[in-house]
Computed example of a mutant assay.
Amino acid sequence: MAFVGVVYDSGYGHTAAQARAVGEGVLRVDGAECRMFFASDVAGDLEALDACDALIFGTPTYLGSASAEFKSFMEATSGKWARQGWRDKLAGGFTTSGGYWGTS
């Protein structure tokens, strides 16, 4: 059984809709389970992600970058990253933007 975690932030609901679609796609794979994590909630409990075989990250694009909430999650992972705590995990990502160049 493969366990996939989808970690995302969503300001207006668009990225949440994308995250749900990603989760539905995961569930179409035989033997795969999916658990959704809101980035600000899991930032204080990164051990919840340790059980995942793969992590998929999603964030809205604001002014050409990730949202502040997602950046806070990223910063919370710095210690785990430095220790290579998720070294053997598969990873992927997605983003949503209102503009062609991620400006809104």
Rank of each mutant, 00 (worst) to 15 (best):
A91P: 00
S67A: 08
G98I: 02
G79P: 05
S72P: 05
S72F: 11
S72M: 15
D45N: 15
F37R: 00
A16F: 09
G44I: 04
T95W: 15
S40Y: 08
S65P: 08
W86R: 01
D53A: 10
D53G: 12
A68Y: 13
G31R: 00
A39V: 05
C52A: 15
Y12T: 10
F37K: 01
R83L: 11
A39K: 02
E47R: 11
T103W: 10
T96W: 12
A17R: 13
L27S: 09
F57L: 08
R87D: 14
A54H: 05
L46Y: 04
R28I: 05
K80V: 14
W86I: 04
H14V: 09
G64P: 09
E33L: 13
G58T: 00
T96E: 08
F57I: 00
A16R: 13
E69V: 11
S67D: 03
D9C: 11
G99K: 05
Q18S: 11
G31D: 06
A21W: 13
A51F: 06
F38S: 15
S104C: 11
H14D: 11
F57R: 03
L46C: 01
E24D: 09
G85H: 01
L49F: 02
V42W: 00
W86S: 04
A48W: 08
G11V: 10
I56L: 07
R28M: 15
T59P: 03
D45Y: 13
G31V: 01
W86A: 03
S104K: 15
Y100N: 14
E24S: 09
P60F: 10
G11H: 08
T61G: 11
D41L: 07
E75W: 14
T77C: 12
A51N: 04
C34E: 02
A43N: 03
F73V: 07
D41K: 07
W101P: 06
V26M: 01
G44E: 08
S97Q: 03
V29M: 14
G11W: 08
W101Y: 13
L27E: 09
A43Q: 04
G25R: 03
V29R: 15
W86Y: 06
D41E: 10
G93Y: 14
G44C: 06
E69I: 13
S65T: 14
A68T: 14
T103C: 12
A19N: 03
V29D: 09
E24H: 05
F38V: 11
E75Q: 10
G102H: 02
K89V: 02
E24V: 03
P60E: 07
G79C: 07
D30V: 11
S97Y: 02
G93A: 15
F73D: 04
D30M: 10
G31E: 05
L63V: 15
V22H: 01
G5D: 05
K80D: 13
E47N: 06
M1H: 11
G25A: 07
V7E: 08
W81C: 05
A54E: 07
T61S: 12
F94M: 01
A82L: 10
G64W: 09
L49C: 03
G58M: 00
M74N: 13
L55G: 01
G79Y: 06
F38Q: 11
A43R: 05
L63R: 12
S67P: 01
S40E: 12
A19S: 06
E47Q: 08
G25D: 04
S65A: 14
R35Y: 07
V22A: 02
